[in-house]
Design a protein around this nucleic acid. Structure first.
Length: 233
DNA sequence: GTTCTAACCTATTCATTGT
DNA sequence: ACAATGAATAGGTTAGAAC
């Protein structure tokens, strides 16, 4: 419990980034007390007016107040807020303190809410990425699986031909196909080239990986030609 | 090397919304 | 009523700075 409170306190500090990298060992100045109440009753300056205005128009979103005695219900963000957050997310998936404060002012939300929204958004984005990746891999699997099927049928045919010819007691020259090893089967099926470039790379080249958001491939590794999708929601 | 902090993550909770 | 969605919380990890 004590840990929780300390943690929360820490979050307040980090989200406001009030010390800009220096250790927050100095007491919090009284005049900035509003800074540390992202979820409690003290409103964010400048935001207060905006919130009031928004509430009047019926599209307001007051910061959630999670104090046990004065617990406010969760409010969904408005379409306008989501739109701007979305745009910002498309520009840059990570949130630097400056941008957080800017969005906070523009949207009339607590910096903490901005940070939370970005975090949740990244999570949703990542989930979509994984779904997309699953689709890509499944498609690749289906392609390879079909080719395997064709090859097996071809092998069967060739074996049948071979045994038929052997049945005539003849030795065939000039039309030899090595089928005991997987590596040299030359398929007659259309467009099949399993040598050189891997099938995965082919699939990627053919546009199955249509990601455009870059620089966020640190958590999930992808085939070299795959980029993450354009921020699905 | 240890400690501290900021920032991030995943898992979870819980209110809201749509059916 | 129930499931889906999303805002918020809890707790853990990590990188970097300070000592």
């Amino acid at each position: 419990m004590e840990l929780k409170e300390r943690d929360l306190d820490r979050e307040l500090e980090t989200d406001m980034d009030w010390h800009h990298g220096t250790k927050p060992l100095v007491p919090r100045p009284e005049t900035l007390s509003f800074f540390y109440n992202y979820n409690y009753n003290s409103p964010y300056p400048g935001v207060e007016v905006k919130q009031a205005a928004l509430m009047e128009t019926g599209e307001g979103s007051v910061p959630a107040l999670m104090d046990s005695r004065n617990k406010e219900k969760k409010k969904r963000l408005t379409n306008n807020q989501i739109e701007l957050l979305e745009r910002s997310f498309q520009e840059e998936i990570k949130l630097d303190p400056e941008r957080k404060m800017k969005l906070s002012r523009e949207l009339g939300l607590q910096p903490r809410q901005i940070a939370v929204w970005f975090q949740n958004r990244r999570t949703r984005w990542k989930t979509k990425q994984l779904e997309h990746l699953y689709d890509v891999l499944k498609h690749q699997y289906d392609v390879v699986s079909n080719e395997k099927q064709k090859l097996q049928e071809e092998v069967m045919k060739l074996k049948a031909m071979l045994s038929k010819e052997q049945g005539f007691g003849k030795q065939t020259f000039g039309c030899y196909t090595e089928i005991s090893g997987e590596e040299t089967v030359e398929s007659t099926s259309e467009g099949l080239t399993l040598r050189g470039k891997s099938n995965i790379e082919h699939v990627a080249d053919q546009g199955y990986c249509s990601f455009t958001v870059e620089d966020y491939n640190t958590t999930v590794s992808l085939p070299p030609h795959c980029h993450w999708p354009a921020v699905p929601y």
